[in-house]
Design a binder for these strands. Structure first.
Lengths: 221, 221
DNA sequence: CCTACCGATCGGTAGG
DNA sequence: CCTACCGATCGGTAGG
């Protein structure tokens, strides 16, 4: 009888926990993300993360085998987000329906949606900070850039084939268009980083608007 | 007599040393630069630097008060180089004489001269790696970017006033032009860094050429 | 999830 | 420029 009561009690607790409080694993990830974004991976110790969570350092190892594994956990976030975002329709249909200006505006909207959460800002800060000395992050960036350049090269070659833009080298156009985003990321996340909510959004909107106007104007026939 | 002979011997040695071998201080700077460029500041220990130079770790402290001071020494290099480079003539005269295309080509030449030494490549690798967590480097970058953007904004507003280019926002043009250089630096020094001599030059020349052609074409009346 | 502990390594110093 | 040493801190583990 006592056993039964205990079990019921446990189940109720588990349910409440799941509904209202993050799991310890998630709390560790959140604390680590906050600290890594502020100080960088190397400058944050396992002791600091544990303190932020409110547990002992050794308890971290019940959830993650190593410090690197915590970083891996953080990196899963943008990877899964990346697949959710992005237009679902066929590319040719989109280009035909939206035209040059409409397509560029739509892409900018996708980018803004993708970056809008504060968590995403922090993840990008960590990615930018650590891109030089963590192999997985370096690979992530390399794929990210290569993928984006391929995508935009394809878009501009389609547009050129359809006679929608001036007959310019699609690969050069991809670099011109996408490079400004990298420039924006570096300036914000590495040089003028400031932890206040929404500050990336504000800076990005001003900067990207001018870029889009110039770029569309340069491609128009 | 023996003393005199010894002294002569010493003097000769010193002269030969000064003429053919770098000072210990310079050898420390060179070794540190090489190691920092390869592994990053934090990942290199004072022991490693000493080993590379061929002296004991404690001897480093006869030349530099701390590890940070070695980094400061390395950073003096681009700072002094920056002042040597750059056109000396009056800006208006240059713009009038060279025209849009000529001015852009001259600037690209200045950039290539500036980056051509292998030492400079290594310095930039260190600067890019450490820009997030060393205050001095962050300030250097911030000034570097702000200075470049101001310069190019001035150039394009002069060109617009002279009727040499389309009447576009000079600040936007400065971002468009200069942003590609930052993109190039990030892609090379942070993501696809490869220590082989001259590899930056090769990559940069291909990438910058396309950029210049597109940019000039977009501004031409 | 805790207490208690580990070896390794760090930047830097004393004193010659 | 050297030998010898320092306290501090690190990531990680044993064992409960």
């Amino acid at each position: 009888m006592v056993k039964m009561a205990d079990k019921k009690q446990q189940i109720t607790e588990v349910k409440i926990k799941a509904a209202s409080v993050a799991s310890t694993k998630d709390r560790i990830l959140d604390a680590a993300l906050e600290l890594f974004a502020r100080k960088g991976f190397d400058a944050v110790s396992m002791r600091e993360i544990a303190e932020e969570v409110g547990i002992q350092k050794s308890s971290l190892y019940s959830h993650f085998k190593s410090k690197d594994e915590i970083l891996d956990g953080i990196m899963e976030f943008p990877a899964t987000e990346l697949t959710l975002v992005g237009p679902k329709e066929e590319l040719d249909t989109l280009i035909d329906n939206l035209g040059l200006e409409g397509f560029m505006m739509m892409s900018n909207g996708v980018f803004r949606d993708w970056m809008k959460s504060q968590k995403m800002e922090k993840v990008w800060r960590v990615l930018c900070i650590e891109m030089y000395h963590n192999e997985k992050i370096q690979a992530f960036f390399s794929n990210f850039i290569d993928g984006a350049i391929s995508f935009w090269t394809l878009v501009f070659s389609k547009m050129a084939a359809k006679g929608m833009i001036k007959p310019l080298d699609p690969a050069v156009l991809a670099n011109e268009y996408f490079g400004q985003y990298i420039y924006l990321f570096i300036e914000y996340f590495l040089i003028k980083y400031d932890n206040t909510p929404g500050s990336f959004k504000r800076m990005a909107e001003k900067s990207i608007e001018g870029h889009m106007i110039f770029f569309v104007e340069a491609l128009k026939k």
